[in-house]
Amino acid sequence: MWEAIGFYALAIFLIYFAFQTITVPNPIHSALYLVLTMVGLSAAFFNLGAQFIAGVQMIVYAGAVMVLFVMVLMLFDLKAEIRAFSQGLFSGGLKVMSAALLAGLAIGAANSSVAILDKPVEAARAPADVTRQLGLLLYTKYLFAFEALGLLLLVVAVGVVAVSRIRGGTHAQR
């Protein structure tokens, strides 16, 4: 009963914040609403028994990534946009409908696959145990993926420096 009330309250908040994120004309407000969405998602992860992921979500997304977004926005000194959305009522409706169609397809497919999933093994693990098992899995079975990810981050760091040094890019004046 209380679980249901908590879930619906969280879902309403999440949907409201996400809707505000994509509709407010001022990009800074949009970023701040996205921070609230991230915090709500972190609460949802906590509900689902993923305490470590919830903490990482708070630190990495709400902490680091969104602060980066807000800093870049402040660098640009943007005002609220007069035309925040792309023009064209017909194409806009088409875009919304295609997004809704994709979401409906995904939800339908997932719902029909819920029935054929194996029943949960009912592992009421302690939070510390989840984190410990996560670490064990990450450094044994997924060690290669972990190292590849580190290499990817190095390449991205070099690439970002290279991209931010270009002058004009494809629109360079000649």
Binding site: I22, P27, S30, A31, F69, V72, L73, F76, L78, E81, R83, A84, F85, S86, G92, K95, V96, S98, A99
Partner: peptide
Amino acid sequence: LMRKNVIV
């Protein structure tokens, strides 16, 4: 699909 600001 619909916003025009790259950051959004």
